[in-house]
């Protein structure tokens, strides 16, 4: 019997418009652009720090402009989105079974949220925000 299957092509550039869940996924992936650039800013800051007080303070002063404020604000939003998506799916990669029972996802995800809160507070206290 001859068969003539019809193949529907998937667009490599626009496929993610097909469903909201794909858009959520792409948003998560795009966080890497912002966090990646921020990581480079951190590297530059550390480099200036190693050069001495004046270069480091120039670096801090250079941050003080509208473009970097907008960028850092977006980076913060994307970093928060990344954190939520990461913690929410963490239980999938590390299921915990105690005896016959699998721990509900909230245990592993909740543990991450608690650790996140503690570390964030520690960093902010260290930086003298409180």
């Amino acid at each position: 019997m001859s068969r003539y299957p019809y193949v529907r092509e998937v667009s490599p550039t626009t496929w993610y418009f097909r469903a909201p869940r794909y858009m959520r996924y792409m948003t998560r992936e795009v966080t890497s652009i912002f966090i990646g650039i921020f990581t480079v800013i951190m590297l530059v800051g550390l480099s200036r720090l190693s050069e001495g007080q004046a270069p480091y303070e120039d670096f801090l002063a250079a941050l003080n402009n509208p473009f970097s404020v907008i960028f850092l604000f977006l980076a913060l939003a994307f970093a928060l989105y990344n954190s939520f998506t990461w913690f929410n799916v963490a239980p999938k990669a590390m299921p915990i079974q105690v005896g016959e029972e699998l721990m509900p996802d909230i245990v592993v995800a909740g543990g991450h949220y608690i650790l996140w809160a503690i570390l964030s507070v520690v960093i902010l206290i260290w930086a003298g925000i409180f």
Binding site: M42, L60, W116
Partner: peptide, 21 residues
């Protein structure tokens, strides 16, 4: 991913504060 998810928001917030002077 684990490390960034845990510390990036706080570090970016500190940098943002520096950026607004």
């Amino acid at each position: 991913g684990e490390a960034v998810s845990l510390v990036a928001p706080a570090i970016i917030l500190l940098t943002l504060l520096a950026a607004i002077g």
